[in-house]
Nucleic acid binder design. Structure first.
Length: 220
DNA sequence: GATAAAAGTGCGAACCCTGG
DNA sequence: CCAGGGTTCGCACTTTTATC
């Protein structure tokens, strides 16, 4: 498998390459130090399996760069955003633009490998710390807020279920935590999906995170 | 205050789909 | 085949709200 690492810091690329070498069947690593190089690599290289993208790179704004990368990459190739900043607004915007996840550069190699495996298996990885942050409070910086009314429409029980979904728990685990039948949890999950206008639990978690819901809501 | 309606919550069951 | 996720239906109970 080929992995494209796009980061303007050579030292970080070296470290990342070392981490990736621990993968079963070490991948072929392609490197880019700015957005134009990353886009060119995405266009010219075949069989890229995953892209690790630093948001802060020269060449163009991260939004334009990510959009351009998504344009040239096949739709089934996931792009994981790497950043030293954990500005959740940027991260969630990136996810909305098609990123399959976000890995803080402060993460351990173990976390990074786990996140990569999750994304490669079709999931979306967001760090717990990001999900645990409180509401952004404002859309002044341009964060889309569509759907907040839908979130407000959720019942307290549904919010509890959504918070546990955000912790990656299965219906069974949620049922155990809330002392409900699994069928009841499914009922709540179905209602949540409808309310948030999404079609699966992963997107519901992303949407909830986007809207500022977090695990601490369990106590409300 | 009493009553009815609505909303929220909970359960069981059956069905379909998907992936391992 | 089986487990898990998602959907739908029916039913019951409690709480809240509106009406008289």
């Amino acid at each position: 498998m080929k992995i494209l690492i796009a980061d303007d810091h050579e030292l970080f690329r070296d470290g990342l390459r070392h981490v990736l070498s621990q993968f079963e069947g070490p991948p072929i690593v392609i490197e880019a130090s700015d957005f134009p190089q990353a886009i060119a690599a995405a266009e010219n290289e075949t069989d890229i399996g995953i892209v690790l993208l630093d948001l802060a790179m020269p060449g163009m704004s991260w939004g334009d760069g990510l959009a351009k990368l998504r344009d040239v990459l096949p739709s089934d190739v996931p792009v994981i955003v790497l950043s030293a900043s954990d500005d959740r607004r940027h991260v969630l915007q990136a996810v909305n633009m098609g990123a399959a996840g976000f890995i803080p550069k402060t993460s351990s190699s173990r976390v990074m490998l786990s996140a990569l495996k999750l994304v490669l298996s079709g999931g979306v990885y967001l760090p717990p710390a990001l999900l645990d942050q409180g509401p952004s409070g404002s859309d002044a910086a341009g964060l889309p807020v569509a759907g907040e009314s839908a979130l407000a429409a959720l019942t307290p029980r549904q919010r509890e279920v959504l918070a546990l979904l955000g912790q990656g728990k299965s219906n069974k685990e949620i049922a155990r935590v809330l002392e409900l039948a699994e069928g009841t949890v499914k009922l709540h999950v179905t209602a949540i999906l409808k309310a948030l206008n999404v079609n699966n639990r992963t997107r519901a978690v992303v949407a909830a995170s986007h809207l500022g819901l977090n695990g601490s809501d369990l106590n409300t």
